[in-house]
Design a binder for these strands. Structure first.
Lengths: 130, 130
DNA sequence: GCTTGACCTTCCAGTCACTGGAACCCTTAT
DNA sequence: ATAAGGGTTCCAGTGACTGGAAGGTCAAGC
C-alpha cells in the first residue's frame, strides 16, 4: 500500500505519516523504488495515533500509549494513570479558558460597541490597579 | 530604567521584552552603552500587553489592541468586535476540550486500573469501528 | 587600578506538531 | 516520448517565547 492510500484509510495526511515515520512512530519498509510499503498493521497503528491525538495526547504520550497497546504484559493501571494525568491537564486548561471567557464576556457585554472611544475593555487592559 | 526594572514592574521576563521590541511592539531608545532606556510609558505598554496576552489574545491582536488604545479616534465598536471574535474562539476551544474531557473521563472511569491488561481506553483508541 | 559579580547586549537554537513548497524520481497511460 | 499523477527528500516557517553562549558594561570593594 502506498502512502496516499494509507492517508485516506487512516485519516492522516501523507505529510503527517512521513513525520510519524521520521520520529519513529511507524517504520514501514521500503520497496525497490524507495516507496514506503505499508500494511494493514500500519494503517491500524496510524489510526490509533490519530485517535490518541484527537484526545489531545501529546506525541510522546501517543508513543507511550502505542507501546502499551502493543505490550501484552501491560497493566491497565499504567494506561489509566497516563489518561488521568492528561485528563487533569485538560481540566486545567478548561478552567483557565473558562476564567478568561467569563472576564472577557463581562467586558464585552459592558462595552457599548458604538462610535465613541470609551471602552471598558481597553480600560481594563490599561488598568493601573489590579 | 533598565530592562530588569521594567521586567519586574511589568511582570514580563526580560527575554519577552526584548522579543516584543524585536517584533516592534515597543521601541525604547538606546543609551550610549547600547542599553535599552525604558520610561514609565514603556512599562505601561508592556503591562498592557501582558494583560492582553493573559486574556489569550494573539500577539497580532495585542498589536491591534495597543494601536486602538493609543488611537484617540478609535471607536469602542472596533475593540468590541475584536474581543467578541476572540471570545468566540475561546468558547470554541472550551467546547472542544469539554468534549475531550467528557469522553476521556468516561473512559478513565470505566478502566479498572489494576494489574490486568484489559483496558477500555486502549480498546477505544484501537477501535476499528466508529 | 584591578577584580568580581551582576548587569546588559546579540545571536543561534530549540520548543511542538506539523505544513508548505521546491526539486527531483517513479509509474502508468497515451 | 511525454505528460499526469504518484512518490521521495530536504529546508523553512508557524507562535510566542525560552535557554544558552559569547562578549561588553557598570558599580563596589580591595
Amino acid at each position: 500500500m502506498n502512502i496516499s492510500d494509507v492517508a485516506q484509510r487512516s485519516g492522516l495526511p501523507p505529510k503527517t505519516i512521513r513525520y510519524y515515520e521520521d520520529i519513529g512512530l511507524v517504520t514501514p519498509p521500503r520497496g525497490a523504488n524507495g516507496y514506503r510499503q505499508f500494511t494493514e498493521v500500519h494503517v491500524h497503528k496510524l489510526a490509533f495515533l490519530g485517535r490518541a491525538r484527537a484526545f489531545g495526547f501529546s506525541i510522546e504520550d501517543c508513543r507511550t500509549l502505542l507501546g502499551l497497546y502493543e505490550d501484552e504484559s501491560r497493566t491497565s493501571a499504567e494506561v489509566k494513570e497516563l489518561a488521568q494525568t492528561h485528563l487533569a491537564e485538560i481540566e486545567g486548561k478548561i478552567s483557565a479558558l473558562a476564567e478568561m471567557r467569563d472576564t472577557l464576556r463581562t467586558l464585552v457585554h459592558s462595552c457599548a460597541g458604538d462610535d465613541r472611544p470609551d471602552c471598558p475593555i481597553l480600560a481594563t487592559l490599561a488598568a493601573s490597579d489590579s
